[in-house]
């Protein structure tokens, strides 16, 4: 579905990704693992078109999206939940969701469906996003991305700093999306969450993919975690 082939990308003169390749398949959770600075978030931003590619291709169902202007990428059906949530802090919950809906001109029933997944947001529609609790903010960031009815969902550390009940709520939603056939790319630090939910794990180091393993293999060979993550 989403194919990243040999991309080079970085910030200005600083190259971060060096010939990185990976594939994200529908109905699967692909997890990016790596130490801090390995290039996980940079990969996400490169897919979203927020960083220019100096080499390589990114295709979504065969269409080359790697050279599109950044605002065209989400319109192809890629929902992005950035690290640190990146909500529009001074806008209300309803306005944040409205921006998600506007991305692909989603019909109104999409909003009802999203609020059905996160009923707590429905009670807070008029509240400014910055006044929500951390868990509610993460729900809103997720809900905003789901307003696109995405074919591919990119989640960058969705459980960072959340209490266990919130983590579980987010996890349930991700698993439900997977069962609906959404292709999911996940960056996550908490290994237990990854090992229980992911289908495939991609280890990256210095902006390159070192190894790709099925989650089943990984449970059989825990020494891989030690080698790439030091845990």
């Amino acid at each position: 579905m989403l194919e990243v082939t040999g991309i080079d990308a970085g910030y200005g003169p600083v190259q971060v990704l060096r010939g990185l390749s990976l594939a994200v398949r529908p109905g699967e959770i692909t997890c990016l693992l790596g130490r801090n600075g390995a290039g996980k978030t940079t990969t996400m931003k490169a897919i979203m078109g927020l960083l220019p590619l100096s080499a390589g291709r990114i295709t979504l169902e065969g269409e080359d999206i790697g050279r599109l202007p950044a605002h065209e990428v989400p319109r192809r059906g890629i929902g992005y939940i950035p690290q640190g949530r990146r909500l529009f802090a001074e806008l209300t919950v309803a306005q944040n969701l409205e921006i998600g809906l506007m991305t692909r001109n989603s019909p109104r029933h999409v909003l009802a469906r999203v609020l059905d997944l996160f009923p707590r947001l429905a009670d807070r529609m008029g509240q400014r996003a910055e006044t929500l609790s951390g868990g509610e903010q993460q729900m809103l960031a997720t809900a905003r991305a789901l307003c696109l009815e995405p074919r591919v969902l990119l989640l960058d550390e969705p459980t960072e700093g959340l209490q266990p009940s919130m983590i579980e709520a987010i996890r349930q939603v991700v698993i439900r999306l997977k069962s609906e056939g959404v292709a999911i790319l996940l960056v996550e630090q908490r290994l237990d969450a990854v090992l229980s939910a992911a289908d495939r794990v991609v280890f990256i180091e210095n902006g390159q993919v070192r190894e790709t393993a099925g989650a089943v293999d990984l449970r059989a060979r825990p020494e891989m975690l030690k080698r790439y993550l030091g845990v």
């Binding site: 950044a70 605002h71 950035p82 990146r86 506007m102």
Partner: peptide, 24 residues
């Protein structure tokens, strides 16, 4: 209005606005 919402979203976070289809 919608155009105002788009302008305020761009003001608050340019990069995230782009990630939600706003032609900044």
């Amino acid at each position: 209005t919608r155009i105002g919402l788009v302008m305020r979203a761009t003001q608050l976070d340019r990069e995230t606005a782009q990630a939600f289809g706003i032609p900044v």
